[in-house]
């Protein structure tokens, strides 16, 4: 028995970005916003479990020439089109060299079939606190490019999430691309603890960039997954990491105190708060050890 009657669903399939944006604007004015479909890897799960609220969709598959794929800007910035799949980026060796934390994250999304359909932009917009690719993008200071029929703007990913499953995108806007500025590969660290090896939702995850200079950390980005209502940077922890030269008992305790000021993970059906906090802390220490030049 299928969960949604197909007759009850309206889908439009524009073949030009301008048409898509016009449809989004029109639907917004009518008070019946459209939900964008890219890989459908989230929508189909919601539909199967009866939680899909939307009945009107805009299918972006006709926009591949405008929104598909990824490109490299002259300064080394990676531009990821809204329809770029995980598999597409994983097929580019330069992505592995430049952004190992991003390709590691992409390679742990679901399994091969999901990676072939799912998109980075869809992962960002889905706003799951257990997202795989979005935390790596956040740690890499990625920027979201939004466009509507009347305007275009960029929002840093660090300001994109406004609450549980809520984003800064207006209903008439579409993510057209994500841009990731260059970052030294050696400072990147990613680790996901899932419920199993693949086809797994993250129980706790870390996406970190630790910049070292003369034996000490001088700058830090630490993004926590499944530790709060949204993926988020742990700012107290980032501050506490500055100046760290290595891991000893006192440093470890100070980092844990800072982490606890940022993150109070909860118990849910997949794991428990005490485990999330302890393992996140241990992964922070691992990140310090492994990024030290």
């Amino acid at each position: 028995m299928s969960a949604i009657a197909h007759s009850a669903v309206a889908v439009t399939r524009p073949t030009a970005l301008s048409a898509a944006l016009a449809q989004l604007a029109d639907a917004h004015v009518r008070g019946a916003p459209l939900r964008a479909l890219a890989g459908c890897t989230d929508v189909l799960v919601e539909a199967n479990h009866g939680g899909l609220k939307h009945r009107s969709f805009i299918d972006l598959s006709g926009l591949k020439s405008e929104l598909g794929g990824h490109s490299w800007l002259p300064d080394g910035t990676l531009r990821i089109g809204a329809l770029c799949t995980y598999s597409a980026l994983l097929a580019d060796p330069r992505a592995h060299e430049a952004f190992p934390m991003l390709t590691q994250a992409a390679g742990l999304v679901g399994a091969t079939q999901i990676q072939a359909r799912g998109t980075f932009a869809g992962n960002v917009e889905n706003a799951s606190p257990a997202a795989d690719a979005a935390p790596a993008l956040l740690a890499l200071d990625a920027v979201v490019h939004l466009q509507s029929a009347s305007s275009a703007r960029t929002v840093p990913l660090s300001q994109y999430y406004t609450g549980y499953r809520a984003t800064a995108r207006r209903p008439d806007e579409l993510i057209v691309a994500l841009e990731v500025p260059p970052a030294p590969a050696g400072e990147q660290f990613f680790r996901k603890v899932g419920t199993r090896a693949f086809q797994a939702i993250t129980k706790v995850g870390i996406s970190a960039r630790l910049r070292w200079h003369e034996g000490a950390i001088v700058d830090a980005r630490v993004v926590a997954t499944s530790m709060a209502a949204t993926i988020c940077r742990a700012t107290h922890l980032e501050n506490a990491l500055r100046g760290v030269r290595g891991v000893d008992g006192a440093t470890s305790q100070a980092l844990r105190r800072a982490q606890d000021a940022d993150l109070r993970p909860i118990d849910d059906v997949r794991s428990q708060g005490d485990y999330r906090a302890e393992v996140f802390h241990r992964m922070v220490l691992q990140a310090v050890r492994e990024t030290r030049a």
Binding site: T195, A197, I201, R270
Partner: peptide, 8 residues
């Protein structure tokens, strides 16, 4: 959320 093993 009822987690059975995969080949991985």
């Amino acid at each position: 959320n009822y987690v059975v093993p995969t080949f991985a």
